[in-house]
């Protein structure tokens, strides 16, 4: 009854037919590994991403802004949680995934290794960093692995206010006092290039990209997404009267796209390698929360075990 089938070919056929891969389906080891690496990096980015923004919760300049920021940072915890859950469907426990973050073995988005220095940085992060993240996330709603795609759909739904609240902050600052305008421009100056780096290396230097595209984990290349982001964001900056810090930025009538300058890739690889302004602080903060939470987690388990025993008796 069973014909000899090539598992790998069958797998690729499903992908080509736009069928989702589900946890119990056969999948190549490399596909599983790529997903575990990518989804856990994504999860870590959400959780580490809480830190630079959380830095301003106690200092938000109005109660409305404070409530919005709390809700946003909380959403990121939720998104980390959804993504850790997606990793668990691949057979890797949250504990293991988080251990890799705490030990420094796992990476997260380098953008979160930059410091939030003024209130305007909260605006810039929402507008640019979330804006860039959303480009990626919208694409990932169609990724080939079912649980990842489903998590992304939920995340995209929730994220829709994140970028808007950031842009609103920037817009209000730009219409504010001279000092506020300067604060907004300074934040844009500092966050613009790191935001472009969020899309990853150029396609030419992105070794895993081709395979990920073939598996439909990724559906658009780094450079494509980056270009779309630029094309959209330049217009938004104009509307609120801010200047993109790129002297080479220029509309190209031929390509109907913006031409733009060059990313400082030395900085990019430096931060990835651990030499960003806040790499050590971020790692220390996550480790501290984990270590200081241990007795709390243990207490809950001990209590649950006691109660289960009493119930059984």
């Amino acid at each position: 009854m069973t014909e000899p089938i090539n598992l790998e070919e069958g797998f690729q056929a499903k992908i080509d037919a736009e069928l989702k891969i589900e946890p119990k389906d056969w999948m190549p080891d490399a596909y599983r590994k790529t997903l575990v690496r990518q989804i856990s990096q994504h999860a870590h980015s959400e959780v580490v991403g809480m830190l630079p923004e959380g830095n301003w919760i106690t200092r938000a300049p109005s109660l409305r802004r404070k409530a919005i920021l709390l809700a946003k940072v909380q959403d990121e915890a939720g998104h980390g949680l959804y993504l850790y859950s997606a990793v668990e469907t691949l057979g890797t426990s949250r504990e293991k995934t988080i251990d890799d973050l705490l030990s420094g073995k796992a990476k997260y988005s380098s953008i979160f290794n930059y410091p939030t220095l003024t209130w305007a940085d909260i605006g810039a992060i929402g507008w640019l960093v979330d804006g860039a993240a959303i480009m990626n996330q919208v694409m990932l709603c169609r990724t080939s692995y079912g649980p990842y795609a489903r998590a992304m759909v939920r995340i995209c739904k929730e994220e829709s206010f994140h970028q808007r609240q950031g842009y609103e902050i920037m817009s209000v600052l730009s219409k504010g006092t001279e000092e506020q305008q300067a604060m907004a421009q300074d934040a844009l100056d500092r966050w613009w290039w790191p935001s472009l780096m969020m899309f990853g290396p150029t396609d030419a230097n992105s070794p895993h990209s081709a395979q990920s595209m073939k598996w439909k984990i990724k559906r658009q290349s780094n450079d494509e997404l980056r270009q779309t982001f630029i094309d959209r964001t330049v217009q938004q900056a104009e509307v609120i009267g801010l200047t993109i810090p790129d002297p080479e930025l220029k509309w190209n009538e031929g390509t109907k796209q913006y031409d733009w300058g060059t990313i400082d890739w030395t900085e990019f690889y430096d931060v990835v390698a651990g030499n960003g302004p806040c790499n050590k602080e971020r790692s220390a903060a996550r480790n501290k929360a984990h270590d200081e939470g241990e007795w709390v987690r243990n207490a809950a388990m001990a209590y649950a075990a006691k109660k289960a025993k009493q119930k059984a008796a």
């Binding site: 939720g78 998590a151 929730e158 209590y303």
Partner: peptide, 24 residues
């Protein structure tokens, strides 16, 4: 089915689900 989460016991699982999955 909306997803999963961790909890020490059933009661906590339900409350965590309330906090994680019904925020909107």
């Amino acid at each position: 089915h909306v997803g999963s989460l961790h909890a020490a016991d059933a009661q906590m699982a339900i409350e965590n689900a309330r906090d994680v999955y019904t925020r909107r």
